[in-house]
Design a protein around this nucleic acid. Sequence first.
DNA 1: TGGGCCTTGACAAACGTTTGTATTGGCGTC
DNA 2: GACGCCAATACAAACGTTTGTCAAGGCCCA
Lengths: 335, 335
Amino acid sequence: MAASIKDIARQAGVSYSTVSRALSNSPRVKAETRHRIQQLAAEMGYLPSAVARSLVTRRTMTLGVVVSTITDLFFAEVIQSIEETALQYKYQAIVASSNGERLRELEAIRALLERRVDGIILVSACCRREDLAGNGPDVPVVSINNLGREHLGYSIEVDDVDGGRQATRHLLALGHRRIAHITGPSEDWDSVERREGYTQELQAWGVPVDSSLIVHGGNRPPDGVRAMERLLTLRPRPTAVFCYNDAVALGAMRAAYAAGLRIPQHLSVVGFDDIDLAPFLEPPLTTVAQPKREMGALAVRMILDLLAGEQSAQDRVLPSRLLIRGSTAPPGGSE
Amino acid sequence: MAASIKDIARQAGVSYSTVSRALSNSPRVKAETRHRIQQLAAEMGYLPSAVARSLVTRRTMTLGVVVSTITDLFFAEVIQSIEETALQYKYQAIVASSNGERLRELEAIRALLERRVDGIILVSACCRREDLAGNGPDVPVVSINNLGREHLGYSIEVDDVDGGRQATRHLLALGHRRIAHITGPSEDWDSVERREGYTQELQAWGVPVDSSLIVHGGNRPPDGVRAMERLLTLRPRPTAVFCYNDAVALGAMRAAYAAGLRIPQHLSVVGFDDIDLAPFLEPPLTTVAQPKREMGALAVRMILDLLAGEQSAQDRVLPSRLLIRGSTAPPGGSE
DNA sequence: TGGGCCTTGACAAACGTTTGTATTGGCGTC
DNA sequence: GACGCCAATACAAACGTTTGTCAAGGCCCA
């Protein structure tokens, strides 16, 4: 159906290798012939077949991205950055989502490998490097916020512990002492680290860690709602809550509002991620920002370096940064 | 690097066509040999090359998806549905974003076509079918909420006019008479239609259409902020606003809060899309839901039908549905 | 006038599959 | 015992490129 290089060769009366060279602007074909062929190709609506090309060049110019879900704004923003950066280097990103299930994640990776992607970026994935070995071609793999942390020189992470500390420190500095924490999915390492930061900072301030103030959450708003409802039954009530991420914080705020509380007068809320919508929430959400765009861009560059044969494997821990907005204030609002 | 079918053939002492057939469970190879070969393949970590296979089968089992940006939750949710549905049929989706720029959109399509995707789904894309013709293979194309509407039997749309009418009717029924409207990007057809629905419903109720109440917005929260700030300068102030989408509504609410208004007491707000976060906003957002999942799934099935040779091209207009939540109430809150 | 070099293009192999056709050997049938 | 048939496998072409090598012709210089 689509014209091939051979069709053009036949039309132009040259061999098809000449057409190939003409189209790739090789100096080995006379300028005049080159132009003639290029014009002919355009007229015939020729579009080279990346699949045929990949077969011989053994490059697909494609990067696989594995993520649990793209409907989480944090992931969506990271992926967007990955895609844009890849595009700059003429690479295309192909993203597969795993729904957070390990099995689907492995299947997704398998599918990407079958498609012979040149590299794979794991975003908050749960599988480890060893899970990938021994199946098909071994391509460079870089992970972002990998949930099963392993530091082999190919990971990019945000400083979750410090993020947790910053969030907690801010609340402590405001005067809060009953500070609750809603965790993420229990098996996720970033959740563990944020909680660790929370605990460390409390201890640094000499505030006892009250385990009833730490409740299991998740990564979506309904998880935040449930967790907050639990916290609201506590007496005395916590005056502040540090949430695993912004989505959970949103749910927590919903539950607080539903209970008739006002934010931040009755309850201060801190999130994590700084999704694009955070500044527009009511009240604008105080949150710990991750350098999403940088993380995506860095991942792509690491893959590309690896592809170029650079051996400089180096783990990167990027700083997180607290953004203070309207959802936090000193304690003391009346009931 | 990775083992190929020939490597297996050599090891197994059979021809490579036999290996190919064994791996695809062809009955033409004896069960015993088949098992032996399959086991050998597994041991050698063999993963078939989709690129080689695609070259001969002329199928990539890949669907291209073009979208302006995946960080818009509405799009993200539609894409997720596309991806999941595609997966059910063993297809993989590869999404390319255009940033809403026509040029990048055409480039993205070109890249997808070079990769020989089996079909293309355009999500709120601005280019038309004719833009795709004559370049490379012509594959089935289905569009969702295409911004340049053309009804050639391959489009899926939500009933935007009716959605606009439902939103406006709800506000009118609550007693509002000064109802503002924040539009989307001016060139987008869905924005035009939602506005049309707004106008129609006002006229049906005999309420004069006041053009100063219709302000140009966009599709992101900051657009909503700007538009709302303009609306808040009006005297008398509008008591309700119908926004192009949920993101804009979020911005509008932010501006209203910043001006000291309360929602819905002083201002009722209606959005469009029903993003997953809508029920968790403060107040929970009344909005017009689009059947996102259905739209994505339908698009995939239409492509697959087309690939299967079905000629039953048929445009689909899906119903929109108003979801009443907390951001709307009768007018009459005091200043 | 002939040898060598440079430019231009042709030839052909290779990438890793799928798949139609040919081949081989064994068996049953008459 | 010859024939045909079936099962099992081998052979080879094809998919659409890239790229290394080879050939032809023109030119320069001796």
